[in-house]
Design a protein around this nucleic acid. Structure first.
Length: 304
DNA sequence: CATACGTGGAT
DNA sequence: TATCCACGTAT
């Protein structure tokens, strides 16, 4: 069935699924593995919390916050028993506060539907609030030693560059899964994270030091523009400005509520829009919708 | 499929 | 000082 269209088809098995390349990469990892504390546990809850934090926060800050959170909420049951306000408080400063609420809700589902243990079934994990394709597979691989491919933005970039193609989400996941050496899911995915973080950077990638260079389609063709990672599935693009955004006001309100309730008359000032009470109430309503904030005639507070 | 979502660091 | 960047999920 050879035809003109075949060359345009996305690959089903990429260059990473190659024995020699796998060996080179595992050797590289043995010498360059980052020493991160969550790599020393296989506890499902600890892994789940670390992955949720690492979605949005730099490693340096998670290093401090992860053990603190787990000390306060060492199990799904202890998290589910706490009030949303306590979990939001423990999340303070990490950003994307909706995820604190989702974590609290996920803990409740884990207690009620899974006997208090983080499930290892992909569908069960995906059905938990705040857990999508990345986190579900990360938990399966890093807590339960499954052989899934874990596609974050770094892995998505590696996949696109080695395949020298812009990939769809489906193809990226397929390539990632196909590349996992059987029985080596944990090591393989951790090493891809480290290659992405230290070598296969968005700009100025360190190709000469990369264990994948001999099989990398983009490198072998001379790294032409455009970078195939640009616009490939799972690779982050540009973002809107934060200063003056609704997000900024949401963050200010949640931070203030962590210190105590806010009266209706203070809302606009707290959110940073002293001359726009309408906007303040509108944006505060989105936080109420998210379950992050409660509102009454007395004012605003975190949900007890 | 494009956009909203937070905070801090890098340039 | 201003701008850009990271990070996956929900919708």
């Amino acid at each position: 069935m050879a035809g003109p269209g075949q060359l345009d088809r996305e690959p089903e098995v990429g260059p990473l699924a190659d024995g020699a390349l796998v060996e080179a990469a595992l050797d590289w990892f043995a010498d360059h593995e980052r020493d991160l504390p969550w790599r020393r546990t296989r506890d499902g809850w600890s892994i789940l919390v670390s992955e949720l934090m690492l979605q949005q926060t730099q490693v340096a800050r998670v290093l401090v916050r992860w053990p603190e959170f787990l000390e306060q909420f060492p199990t799904p049951a202890r998290c589910a028993q706490a009030s949303p306000a306590e979990v939001i408080g423990a999340w303070a400063g990490l950003g994307y506060n909706r995820r604190a609420i989702n974590l609290h809700r996920a803990a409740s589902v884990i207690v009620e539907d899974h006997d208090g243990r983080v499930p290892d079934d992909l569908g069960d994990l995906l059905s938990l609030p705040g857990i999508g394709p990345y986190t579900a597979r990360a938990v399966r691989v890093f807590a339960f030693c499954r052989d899934d491919g874990v596609v974050d933005t770094n892995v998505a970039r590696i996949l696109a560059r080695t395949a020298n193609a812009r990939l769809s989400a489906r193809t990226a996941q397929q390539l990632a899964d196909a590349a996992v050496p059987p029985g080596e899911g944990w090591r393989w995915n951790q090493l891809l994270f480290d290659v992405g973080a230290t070598l296969c950077r968005p700009r100025d990638p360190k190709c000469p030091a990369c264990p994948f260079r001999s099989g990398c389609g983009w490198y072998r063709s001379g790294r032409p523009d455009p970078d195939p990672a640009t616009g490939s599935a799972g690779v982050s693009g540009r973002q809107s400005r934060f200063d003056g955004s609704d997000r900024q006001g949401r963050g200010r309100l949640v931070a203030a509520l962590g210190r105590g309730p806010v009266a209706p008359d203070d809302l606009a000032v707290v959110m940073g829009w002293p001359d726009d009470g309408l906007r303040a109430r509108r944006v505060a309503a989105t936080l109420v919708d998210d379950g992050l904030v409660e509102c009454s005639v007395d004012g605003y507070r975190l949900p007890g």
